[in-house]
Write a protein that binds this DNA or RNA. Structure first.
Lengths: 208, 208
DNA sequence: AGGATACGGAACTGTTCCGTATCGTAAGGC
DNA sequence: GCCTTACGATACGGAACAGTTCCGTATCCT
């Protein structure tokens, strides 16, 4: 994908423009967002992230960035909401397998970078209530919704206890996965089979 | 404690100096560390934290800081290791009560600030392997040791399953508490009674 | 072909911060 | 009482960066 040299990749970048002139490069959009995520995952905190560094990493002029986003905050919001990627949809075989699939999906290489980006985003979330809301609504809540659906179906099907505290259980599944993925919190817990072990441990107290 | 105006508070600040001249002010040490924690908990990321801001917040000249620490990193390490405070010691009544006590201790007002400071420290931990080790060894591991002791005693006493995965259980207890305290991850989970509910849910699958 | 717009790159200005130096003053040891 | 050191404050040169403007070139539409 990187080696493409044909020009036709660059095309209608933003909204379908109709005016004359050279259209914006979709490649530039991509490179800029990619550069932001790259710098964040390397440990650059959000407020220490400089537009100059983004431009240099993306191989792009600063003007090209400012032509698209009015300021750093807008760029950050775009980058973050882009990062989330597609929302996974579990197969619906069994509660156990669905949860394992969802949790294992949090530990891919791509999600490991996602975790580091999130870690470097936290100061911004602490500082700005607006960013916190954007992040919750745009990234966290949609994914939590999927897992919540799995648990709800488990309760209805009788696979899980009827009086299960669904919200707390969500936290018990995602909390350990997050701190382990993001902060390498407990080095004594191996990555191998982590999702299975965690799900089985949680379900041991959640089954009907 | 703040209202003290007597001069005798200033005293042997650092190691017992013997040379002549004015001794260093212990008050200044305290104010500087306090200022660092204050700025971090306000959402200043570690690398965006400026010595000038620390000096201004502490009401101290920059030179007074540079006289004590050679650079920002050393100051940060001192501030972080100071922040941890005393290590709690559970009463040893029952596993359940001990765990509730430990987890509830993670949700005091003081620990809430601690959580915000930690969040703003994360980019630094991602960037610097050394800082990560210092933080793990100086802050996380001692506290995890306490909780590990509680679980181990529970296994020995037969209160918990003999084949319990202690390390994973530690993660299941601290993970949810951390993300909730630090990131307000799931607003649908109430703070009230959080520790009790979490411990009971985990123990449901951990009891013998 | 011609006009319009985007491109990467470079220059420029004003701001912030670092780390050091230097004030006049304060506080303790000899 | 003198010497030494720390104090808060301020100033400094240098570096990094934000945000803007211009250049010459590239690319697409009509």
């Amino acid at each position: 994908m990187e080696a493409m040299t044909t020009a036709s990749v660059d095309a209608v970048a933003d909204q379908d423009r109709k005016g004359p002139g050279r259209p914006r490069s979709a490649r530039a959009d991509e490179a800029i967002i990619e550069a932001v995520l790259e710098l964040l995952s390397a440990g650059q905190s959000a407020d220490a992230l400089s537009i100059e560094a983004v431009a240099a990493t993306a191989g792009v002029g600063k003007a090209t960035i400012y032509r698209r986003w009015p300021n750093k905050e807008a760029l950050l919001i775009d980058a973050v909401t882009t990062m989330k990627g597609p929302i996974p949809e579990p197969a619906g075989v069994s509660v156990r397998d669905d949860l394992v699939t969802l949790l294992a999906g949090m530990r891919t290489k791509r999600m490991h970078r996602y975790g580091k980006v999130t870690a470097c985003l936290l100061p911004e979330l602490v500082k700005s209530e607006e960013m916190h809301k954007v992040y919750q609504a745009g990234v966290v809540e949609p994914r939590r919704d999927v897992m919540r659906g799995v648990l709800r179906r488990g309760v209805e099907s009788g696979e899980l206890r009827a009086d299960l505290d669904v919200e707390l259980t969500l936290l018990m599944l995602s909390g350990p996965a997050i701190v382990q993925n993001m902060l390498r919190w407990n080095p004594a817990v191996p990555d191998e089979g982590f999702a299975e072990h965690l799900v089985d441990a949680v379900l041991r107290g959640a089954r009907a």
